[in-house]
Design a protein around this nucleic acid. Structure first.
Length: 235
DNA sequence: AATAGACTCAACCGCCAGAAG
DNA sequence: TCTTCTGGCGGTTGAGTCTAT
């Protein structure tokens, strides 16, 4: 949706991502990882800032991103965690497999906040009651988050085994990664090339783009088929 | 059918913390 | 210790879509 594509002073594109840009980013990150978001666009052949690439990947292109309606359980979790953590969206999102902080934040502002204003959710009330009854639930929640950071991060999300049981709501884009898994075999078993894996094993220094990355030279080797924003990835 | 207002959500912005030099 | 770089986070924006009139 959204912002009119434009360029900033340095010639970097802004606004809505095109299918072609998505394709380049997905191809690059799944193949080489995101060893440095700021440098990545240059090597991936993208006229975007690194931040924009990271955001696009984290919120949209990453494997196992869950889209669509929120379940009652998910909404209850958001309300409960927001009650105890406040606007710590990333911490809240970490408890909801497949949901991003941006998505949780949007859902809160567009739906849940209003709903609670109109008619305080029974779940929130129950939560208050439970807190009063047991006194320790909130502390438990905080402790869990502080001492044992949720593992629902890149590596677990990227594994099909760890995917949510609500598979139908998971983005169709995942077909892309499943297809890649078939190709590479080791895709899921190797450390996921994402935030937790910035540098691939035998590459400590970024090499010359022209020499090493066909992505910049017309003949582009994509591990996947054509991506269509409406239909997802056509393999 | 046309229009206005409300709603949604992808994307941007600015700030902060941690790491490295 | 200071500076610079980078990733991450939360707040905000604004164009597209939906709904009511």
């Amino acid at each position: 949706m959204v912002r009119t594509p434009c360029c900033d002073k340095t010639g970097l594109r802004k606004g809505t991502w095109t299918p072609e840009e998505d394709r380049k980013l997905v191809a690059y990150v799944t193949r080489y990882g995101c060893w440095n978001w700021r440098q990545l666009p240059k090597y991936a052949g993208l006229a975007r800032c690194g931040k924009s690439c990271r955001l696009r990947w984290m919120n949209y292109l990453r494997p196992n991103i869950k889209r669509g309606n929120y379940t009652k359980e998910e909404e209850d979790t958001i309300i409960r965690l927001h009650d105890s953590l406040g606007n710590r969206w990333s911490a809240i999102a970490a408890q909801l497999p497949g949901r991003t902080d941006n998505e949780v934040k949007n859902h809160w502002h567009t739906t849940l906040k209003k709903r609670l204003k109109q008619k305080p959710c029974p779940t929130a009330e129950n939560w208050e009651n439970e807190k009063n009854k047991h006194g320790v639930i909130q502390e438990k929640e905080e402790t869990k988050l502080n001492n044992n950071p949720p593992l629902i991060l890149e590596s677990s999300l990227s594994s099909p085994q760890a995917a949510s049981s609500d598979e139908n709501s998971v983005s169709d884009d995942n077909a892309l990664f499943e297809a890649y898994e078939e190709d590479s075999g080791s895709f899921w078993t190797e450390p996921f090339l994402s935030d937790s894996y910035y540098m691939w094993s035998d590459m400590s220094v970024p090499f010359e783009a022209e020499a090493e990355f066909p992505l910049l030279n017309g003949e582009i080797l994509y591990p996947f088929g054509f991506y269509d924003q409406l239909d997802g990835f056509n393999l």
